[in-house]
């Protein structure tokens, strides 16, 4: 049985690798092959054709696409991400510190969102049909129905404008004390927590409700078990896989949310960097940022699948 689990996980990892390859080619070709001569754009409208041709040669833009893709891919694996078109600085330097910033934001959000979502999701499944359940369900529907920027603006309206607890816009560039750190983090984390936990609550509740509808849950009821006992002893152990799966999947929504939140709160993370790079059409930077996000997304979804495999009691 153990061997079977290992081979399933191995298969899943192999699929992830293939996916990464497909994704990287999609990112590369979407940016590199679409119309628009990069060299001409870089040099501006006043450039002579000779200058453009010279730059094209220097940047290997005339090489076959497949060769350029291969070179780029090897660069990614060896840590050589190339240089920014906009200012010529190595991309690794540009991203470095900002990547840590984004990780911090994501980490703190996870710390808040997961326990909150678990608690609300499980309790609302346990109290299915009650007023509490309906309120939770309605709130989560509302939250997943609105764009992230709206959650952010609402949070600003409530916490800054009405209550005046926090500054509307915070800049993390000059954080000196722990108090300031809190104030900088507060609004982005609140926004992201709302966005991510709504998904998590919904999926957690669905997973628990599904196991509550099984014959073995009915059997437990017919043994005289109380409702909390049915949920904790019979439903939860079997819902663990789907719940962990839901957690990992929902965390991948963080990535989408992070793009908006970093922009709106001017938070110096990778996403903000990427949005700025889009404005200047800095393709190498965009490609690298995109790959970072895709990799993060892929790691989370693969993790979700592996958890589901490990949680299957029949494979134990």
């Amino acid at each position: 049985m153990k061997k079977q689990v290992l081979s399933l996980i191995g298969g899943r990892l192999a699929i992830a690798l293939i996916t990464l390859l497909i994704v990287s080619s999609a990112v590369f070709f979407a940016t590199a092959l679409l119309p628009g001569d990069t060299a001409a754009i870089l040099l501006g409208q006043a450039a002579t054709p000779e200058a453009v041709a010279g730059l094209r040669k220097a940047m290997h833009l005339d090489d076959p696409a497949l060769l350029r893709y291969g070179r780029w891919l090897i660069g990614l694996f060896t840590g050589d991400f190339g240089a920014s078109y906009a200012n010529g600085r190595p991309i690794l330097d540009l991203i470095g510190g900002r990547f840590i910033n984004t990780l911090k934001l994501a980490g703190v959000t996870t710390l808040f969102a997961v326990p909150l979502a678990l608690f609300l999701g499980i309790t609302s499944a346990m109290l299915r049909g009650t007023l509490y359940d309906r309120v939770v369900t309605l709130c989560t529907i509302g939250l997943i129905s609105i764009p992230e920027f709206m959650v952010a603006t609402t949070a600003v309206l409530v916490f800054s404008v009405t209550l005046g607890w926090l500054p509307a816009l915070a800049y993390a560039n000059d954080v000196k004390s722990f108090g300031e750190l809190l104030r900088v983090f507060a609004m982005p984390v609140i926004t992201l927590t709302f966005v991510v936990s709504a998904q998590m609550i919904r999926m957690t509740r669905a997973a628990v409700v599904e196991t509550l509808n099984t014959p073995y849950a009915e059997m437990a009821l017919l043994k005289g078990a109380s409702r909390p006992r049915i949920v904790l002893r019979h439903a939860l152990p079997n819902a663990l896989g789907p719940i962990a799966n839901a957690m990992a999947l929902s965390l991948s929504y963080l990535l989408g949310g992070v793009i908006i939140v970093e922009t709106i709160f001017n938070y110096p993370g990778v996403a903000k960097l990427m949005v700025d790079a889009v404005a200047t059409r800095d393709l190498p930077l965009i490609q690298t940022c995109a790959m970072i996000f895709c990799l993060g997304f892929l790691i989370l979804t693969t993790l979700a699948d592996i958890v589901a495999i490990l949680a299957n009691p029949r494979l134990r």
Partner: peptide, 16 residues
């Protein structure tokens, strides 16, 4: 595989 590109990111890349 296409599904594992976050939607906003794909939009960003294409628009860029």
């Amino acid at each position: 595989a296409m599904n594992s590109i976050p939607s906003k990111l794909f939009g960003l890349v294409v628009v860029a």
